[in-house]
Amino acid sequence: MANIAAQRIRREFKEVIKSEEVAKCAIKVELLNDSYTELKGEITGPPDTAYEGGVFVLEIKVPETYPFNPPKVRFITKIWHPNISSVTGAICLDILKDQWAAAMTLRTVLLSLQALLSAAEPDDPQDAVVAKQFKENIEMFQMTARHWTNVYAGGPHVNKECDDKIKRLVDMGVEEHQARVALSSYNWDIERATEQIFS
């Protein structure tokens, strides 16, 4: 790994560790190998959002040309959000693309992602299905996002109704995550979700 990149990551790692956000348990970074090319990030869901109480794990890959090119980041924890793919965890965020600047850090990236959870950009979507629901039925979106946070990110809000509908599909032999995706995509309409799964 290039000298600057390794040097940077080493320093940034320390910066995050001693930052006040870590003290408040809002963000966290872990090294996955000795060469500083792969890291694991964590952000907590911002308060007063559907993601509140959840912990979201991120995969961070540091390119050879870092910090002159941005790190590659994606969500490992499944999440229901217009700018994040519910399938791959890919993120649509300008600072991870053309708006990246060499003076930005992992800390700024993690804080920006946290900000993205509070303020989605449905007009620049990564996940078209989620973005459509966000624009057309915000309450349905909130409910779904909260349910996903509960199931995948350890959020506190259990939604009995959702769990029941999923169980009904699981009893029919459908895999649990597939059932959740179908129901989420069809505004929890069990008939249409079933139709989609078995068509």
Partner: peptide
């Protein structure tokens, strides 16, 4: 004292 830190390489 009397030194500056580079925001890119942190040196």
């Amino acid at each position: 004292r009397g030194t500056e830190e580079c925001d890119i390489c942190f040196m």
